[in-house]
Amino acid sequence: MLTAVAGYINFWLIAILLLVGVYGIIATENLLKKLMALNVISVAIILFYLNLGQKAGSTVPILLPGAEVGVVNAYANPLPHTLMLTAIVVGVATTGVGLAMLYKIYHRYGSLEEPDVLKEMRQ
């Protein structure tokens, strides 16, 4: 039983992390917190991919000095790592743009609470 669960528990934790992020976007009214929740989502997805790249008993995907080339199971899958490097960078870039917008919003409206901002904006 435990071994059966062990292979999947990572996915469950990741799913919970993801939903925490989604809940954060829905439930908080502070725009900055929403942006942070967005980052939680992106972290969950990164973990999901990295989890897919794991293999039992494998090491980092860097060829060991003197090792025989081509022992597939000796190294972790490099593809998810590559993809997630990209995803991390995308997340950072989005956060940067989001912060820039928040900066401007805060200067104009003096608040980052969504209801306040919307109320002011619709006038």
């Binding site: 999947y8 996915f11 899958n77 998810p80």
Partner: peptide, 23 residues
């Protein structure tokens, strides 16, 4: 949704599986 994720997770390759499709 969490229930759904957990329910569907059993069709994913388990962690550390050497023969998972991605590997």
């Amino acid at each position: 949704l969490a229930g759904l994720f957990i329910y569907t997770s059993f069709d994913l390759p388990p962690t550390n599986d050497l023969n998972s499709p991605p590997a």
